[in-house]
Design a protein around this nucleic acid. Structure first.
Lengths: 340, 340
DNA sequence: TTGTAGGCGTTATCAG
DNA sequence: CTGATAACGCCTACAA
């Protein structure tokens, strides 16, 4: 077992001082060609690499980014993560991930763990519970300590920081509008509890489209489910209401609907059109294939990482910080569950 | 902006020495009740937390685990990751993830980055390219440095380390056997290129089951696709061969087959039975719902993390290391795409 | 009971 | 051109 070699080992072996070794390996012009060659050759031979931890302590830079997300077994978050990881890696950063599991407490604990020097900045999407409680003190503390923070998707107005969001309201408007253009009159909205910022934005877009087309909003046609995979209650909702189109805030509700609708003997898209959110694996392989809103998670992740790394590397702005909110444009992927 | 407070600050403020502060905060019995109270109160007030980096440097323990996986937008890897993250977190470890994207080079680069002090141990599934090249020097180097390593799912015999694998051959045998028990004679195998260790194990089980039942193996019925989402070629394969059952090494191939088969006017499971691998979201929401092999990724991740943390915390075994290979038992989830 | 000194591995400043 | 010294933040054996 050959332990990692340090500057000290090299110095001792070559009978020079530690600082000479350090300079030689950093190719300092202070050191003679000869000794540089000798030291560099030796270092290569023994595969010397500086210890990241020591460098971090010295520079007060860890080159680590902390990512906190509510869920990892989830297509959207996973694509965002991929975007973050790729960009970060290309720029010499590693990514530490913690999962809040939608829990406020776990979010707080994870943030505190990482904030004690492990990372240079945070990228996160708020836990459901956090959005419900509206308690953002953990975020405040972190930003007050000067640790850069980028919020994505599930954001809050109460914290001043960079943000990356989808144009949820607009795209929901556009989707609803396209259903109306197909001649649909009784358009259902399947959504989650409204404390999720994205759900309420999407509902806004849905309502606006109906209003603009002078279709009165039937509150019966809005089904609010408590949680992402909680699919109960959809069936009775569908049979109780006379529906000719569905807008769903996620893939799972949409696919589940399609199955139920087909069992009821109705045809998609002839009798009922369906549009979902999240262009995941389900949408591509369902029967019929689902028309859905692509959220471009990769892009969101990349933009978030870019914003964060810029902030990390330019902390020279002492006081007058400027925060930006980047809006990612969603696109509707037209497949077989709609007519247009 | 209130910067993080250090021992030094507290010491200066309270006019004691740094070591007194350190001892007081660690509740050392060397320090008087009075000064302890005073120091602890002050520390609490200013929310003192030790700097992780400094502690890491001192202890030569980072409390970080490095995870390197081929892909993150992938149900199985994602569940394994969740298992790792949960166990690690409960035991005070954070997780740094790198994605190799099936590339040998990225796997090597990522390992080297993390091996320079950033982590206490690795958990990984080999990149496809690595399994193809059979070049494991990066793994050797890391283990020779005394960094613990746990391989899962995509493993190799050439490295001595802890491993966590699925009983791939057995479960493929069992699945095939159950298809035979349904009376199926022409059972197709949809698999990926054989350098993936798991694919070849599954093929072994498939062949064994047929042989034991004296069904001659028709090599025409084995379709090898280059990559996970490369679904071309399935259609012509299905029409060219007279098939009454399908065993697929993943969900996507299986779902895609079901779509094609149904378009050909055949019924599932009456005319053709289908069994897939990976109990993901597709299997649950397909029509009909897919009978599939659950790989229990959460469990694999948990076991891998457990093995790794044990090794990290008991490195007192100087020479005679013992490595174990844990086998996770897959289970077949019976749904609607098979008769039994 | 408290403080001093040294070290973890690196880099930077300043003498020689 | 090379080396001694200090510092990053923390811990701990030893001295006072």
């Amino acid at each position: 077992m050959k332990r990692k070699i340090t500057l000290k080992h090299i110095a001792r072996e070559l009978e020079v001082s530690i600082s000479t070794v350090s300079k030689a390996l950093n190719n300092s012009s202070e050191i003679s060609r000869d000794t540089k060659d000798k030291i560099q050759a030796f270092a290569k031979l023994y595969n010397y690499k500086p210890n990241n931890i020591a460098v971090s302590l010295k520079n007060k830079r860890t080159k680590n980014i902390g990512v906190i997300i509510p869920d990892i077994v989830h297509h959207f978050f996973t694509t965002v993560f991929r975007g973050i990881e790729q960009y970060a890696n290309q720029h010499g950063y590693n990514v530490i991930v913690c999962v809040s599991d939608e829990s406020f407490d776990r979010e707080v604990i994870n943030m505190e763990m990482l904030a004690n020097g492990s990372i240079d900045g945070f990228i996160m999407a708020l836990a459901g519970e956090t959005q419900l409680k509206k308690d953002f003190n953990h975020l405040k503390e972190v930003t007050e300590q000067g640790i850069p923070l980028v919020l994505f998707d599930r954001v809050t107005d109460e914290i001043r920081c960079d943000k990356v969001v989808l144009n949820d309201a607009e795209i929901a408007y556009e989707a609803t509008d396209s259903l109306i253009a197909e001649g649909r009159k009784r358009i259902a909205l399947l959504t989650t509890d409204n404390f999720f910022s994205v759900s309420s934005s999407r509902e806004l877009g849905y309502r606006k489209a109906l209003e603009e087309h002078h279709i009165s909003i039937d509150e019966q046609l809005i089904l609010r489910l408590p949680y992402n995979e909680d699919v109960n209650g959809i069936e009775s909702f569908l049979v109780a209401n006379n529906i000719d189109a569905i807008l769903s805030v996620n893939e799972i509700f949409a696919i589940h609907c399609m199955g139920l609708v087909q069992k009821m003997g109705l045809k998609i898209p002839e009798d009922i059109s369906v549009i979902g959110f999240t262009d995941g694996i389900l949408s591509k392989y369902s029967e019929p294939k689902l028309t859905t809103v692509a959220q471009h998670g990769d892009k969101m992740g990349e933009v978030a990482a870019k914003l964060l790394i810029e902030k990390i590397e330019n902390d020279f702005d002492e006081e007058e910080e400027v925060f930006s909110t980047e809006v990612i444009s969603a696109t509707i992927i037209r497949r077989e569950s709609t007519i247009n």
